[in-house]
Simulated scan of single mutants.
Amino acid sequence: MISTPQYWPALCNRRQAPSGPEASRRFLQADLANLADAPARGCWARSFHDADALEEKLTHLEPQVAELNSRLGERDEDLAATRATNRELMSQLNSTSGRCR
């Protein structure tokens, strides 16, 4: 998680900021850091846009996943039934083949 830099509240509330050389120096440093941080804020904004797009895509894909899971469950049941039938037939085949000899 990206934390909000501690100088941002000071930048937003310049009217309430203390005066004097030390305060000016702090605000100049904050402004410089703010300029240096501009690309990161752009990435932050893009990540929110990307998150919205991903959430929309997720909402679109969830019903498809549910349908595929349902179909997979049906095929698992079919496979289990087919295996049971195969075991039964093999058992019958093995029991009758011993009688023919």
Rank of each mutant, 00 (worst) to 15 (best):
Y7S: 03
R26T: 03
E56G: 07
L58H: 14
T96M: 11
V65A: 05
D50Y: 12
I2H: 00
L89M: 09
E74S: 05
L35R: 11
A23W: 01
A10E: 13
G98D: 06
E74I: 02
E55L: 13
N69Q: 15
E67A: 12
N69L: 14
R101V: 05
R87V: 09
E67D: 12
Q6H: 12
L68R: 13
R14A: 08
E77S: 03
A36W: 14
R41P: 00
R46W: 15
E77N: 03
S91C: 11
R15C: 10
W44C: 04
C43Q: 13
Y7W: 15
A45C: 08
R41Y: 10
R25S: 12
D78S: 06
N94Y: 13
E22C: 04
Q16M: 09
R15Y: 15
H60V: 04
M1T: 07
R15H: 15
D78P: 00
L93H: 15
R99C: 03
S47A: 14
A23T: 00
A80W: 01
L35F: 08
T59S: 10
P63R: 09
E67M: 05
C100K: 06
P9V: 00
G42T: 07
A81F: 05
S19W: 07
M1W: 09
A10T: 10
G98H: 13
E62H: 13
A10V: 05
E67S: 10
C100A: 05
G42V: 10
N94A: 12
R99N: 05
M90C: 08
S24K: 09
R87D: 15
I2T: 01
E62A: 13
Q6V: 06
R71H: 08
D31Y: 05
R14H: 02
S19K: 12
E55R: 12
A66S: 10
N13M: 10
L61P: 04
L58N: 11
P39I: 08
A33F: 11
E56Q: 12
A53M: 12
A45N: 09
W8S: 01
G73A: 15
E55G: 06
L32Q: 10
A84C: 01
L79N: 01
P63N: 06
